[in-house]
Design a protein around this nucleic acid. Structure first.
Length: 512
RNA sequence: CGCGGGAUAGAGCAAUUGGCAGCUCGCCAGGCCCAUAACCUGGAGGUUCUCGGUUCAAGUCCGAGUCCCGCAACCA
């Protein structure tokens, strides 16, 4: 038996400075949908997520709330883990950067880069704002003062370690020229390629420990800790055992996709590959950059007070419709908007009137006209089969492969409409009155089989709804899920005579 | 003149190499009675941001301008 193809994908590790908001859930969700889809394709998927807990802001927040920073890190990370559970995210591992396994291995990574001659010490002088506890550039200042603290920063000199990013200018250019898919979508690729072409400077990758005691110690230098990005990025390999027990690393690395938000594209598309080259590791295949969510057309912010709590929203509307809405409405390669009105509109149109109603409509007729059993088929409807196999499935898979889950779901809606049209067209209730029962059976068989296809297609986004539909069709979801997509998408998989499960509306309409 | 994306029906989006401007929601009118007042059919609604150019033909190509937005080392 050939070895299963692997697929390793990650989310960014969110900075656990505060509670998760819906943006974090969105990223986990995009990644989860891809993970589930890849599993359906029969691949051996490994899905990593976690939290980034080091750095100035965490340290400051802990100090302000008067709790040990380790405790804050653990507490906030637990919230992110709860979020993943609640949202039915199928990650295989959850890494926190303050775990020993990560700290040890991140230090190994540092040593590897050092061994390549890419780390050197340099005096750095800059304008330091005591209020921010950070260096500022001239551009950050307003009238020579820090805009947040209205104080003039002081000129401070500090000796830090630097990473020779500039050394990788050419290899990175080569990478971008050779691999146009390295950053997806294209607009983000172009953005980064332009930054790259304008020339890369070496970057500071450590901070003095006096200023920041909360971080991973630089190997061999007790006075310095690693800069958060150098620390955080390595999580993608430390979680696989880099530098210690590399069984998973050998199996799954390089990553097939790092799923990230647009704001951290530079780190992933430029710094990270350079770091990997330095450490002698292979490069990830794709950096998949998603957009942001706005709420009622506005950027989410605490000041405006429109931040959506991902735990609250799934309590209010239940999980699967929320997963559906986000995947249908927020295109991966762009920003998308959330509003209660839009949610209800989508819910009623696509889920209640579309999917839910069709399921109920078909199965009620099976109960009414066919004794509640999947009927015998006399004559196959080649037109429908052709439509499904030549148009719907190829479109669906093309969109899923390209992270365009919105378009994939649109394709499903199109097929649902097609089924509704078929019912209106053939009028099974009239056929039944005329006693043409074999025609009724043929039609209902095809509709049941169509429902099965729909259930398969929605699985990555709405796994529980998918199972409910399969159960109502009298199928065993566990058995179905064990099959590969190539098998599942072929026609005529239903067992004739299968007793259909108990009918229950999937998505009762929402009021206004 | 830092780099890049965009402006299309009330809203959100589509339009392979230029070739009758489409889809979803909403709205209006019919139909149907299997279904969750659901579903199906038809209709109204557009100076495709502005001005100029190329062409038999421009949403699409070229030039100028207006307005939004993204990126520019730590907001998913």
């Amino acid at each position: 038996m050939p070895k299963k193809e692997t697929f390793y994908l990650t989310t960014a590790i969110p900075y656990a400075n505060a509670s998760p908001h819906i943006g974090h859930a969105l990223e986990a969700l995009y990644t989860d949908v891809m993970a589930r889809y890849q599993r359906m394709l029969g691949k051996d998927v490994y899905f990593l997520t976690g939290t980034d807990v080091h750095g100035q802001k965490m340290f400051k927040t802990a100090k302000e709330s008067n709790i040990p920073v380790e405790e804050l890190a653990a507490k906030n990370s637990a919230e992110f883990e709860n979020l993943d559970d609640r949202w039915n995210i199928t990650n295989n591992d959850f890494i926190r950067t303050s775990e020993k396994r990560h700290e040890d291995r991140a230090q190994e990574f540092w040593k590897a880069a050092e061994k390549s001659g890419d780390i050197y010490k340099k005096k750095y002088s800059g304008l330091y704002c005591v209020g921010c506890e950070a260096f500022k550039t001239e551009k950050d200042l307003v009238d020579g003062k820090c805009p947040d603290h209205h104080k003039e920063p002081e000129l401070l000199e500090e000796e830090n370690y630097f990473f020779k990013l500039s050394k990788y200018q050419e290899p990175l250019e080569f990478l971008f020229e050779k691999n146009k898919d390295f950053v997806y979508p294209e607009s983000r690729y172009n953005e980064m390629y332009n930054v790259l072409k304008s020339g890369l400077d070496d970057v500071s990758i450590s901070r003095s420990k006096d200023k920041l005691p909360w971080g991973i110690p630089v190997p061999g230098d007790k006075t310095q800790v690693m800069y958060v990005w150098f620390d955080a990025l390595t999580n993608y390999v430390t979680a696989l055992g880099y530098g210690e027990d590399e069984k998973l690393l050998k199996k799954y690395w390089p990553a097939d996709a790092h799923v990230i938000g647009k704001e951290i594209n530079r780190f992933h598309s430029l710094l990270w590959p350079a770091m990997l080259m330095s450490a002698g590791l292979e490069l990830p295949k794709t950096i998949a950059v998603h957009g942001w969510m706005t709420v009622d057309g506005q950027k989410m912010s605490k000041t405006i007070g429109n931040v959506i709590d991902p735990m609250e929203i799934v309590t209010k509307y239940s999980l699967e419709p929320v997963r559906y809405f986000l995947m249908r409405e927020i295109p991966f390669d762009n920003d998308g908007d959330y509003s209660d009105a839009k949610f209800k509109e989508r819910f009623n149109a696509d889920l209640a009137n579309g999917l839910g109603n069709l399921t109920n409509r078909v199965l009620s007729m099976v109960v009414k006209y066919c004794d509640g059993k999947v009927p015998q088929v006399q004559e196959k409807n080649d037109e429908l089969i052709k439509y499904l196999s030549d148009e719907i499935w190829p479109a669906y898979r093309k969109f899923m492969d390209a992270w365009r889950f919105d378009r994939a779901l649109e394709t499903v809606s199109k097929f649902i409409t097609h089924c509704d049209q078929m019912i209106s067209d053939k009028k099974p209730w009239t056929l039944a009155k005329e006693g043409k029962m074999s025609e009724v059976s043929d039609l209902l068989y095809h509709l049941c089989e169509s429902l099965r296809h729909i259930a398969i297609m929605i699985y990555p986004v709405m796994p529980e709804t998918s199972e409910k539909i399969l159960i109502q069709l009298g199928l065993d979801p566990a058995k179905e899920n064990a099959k590969s997509l190539d098998k599942l998408q072929t026609w005529v998989e239903l067992t004739v005579g299968n007793k259909i499960g108990e009918l229950q509306p999937l998505f009762p309409r929402l009021e206004k």
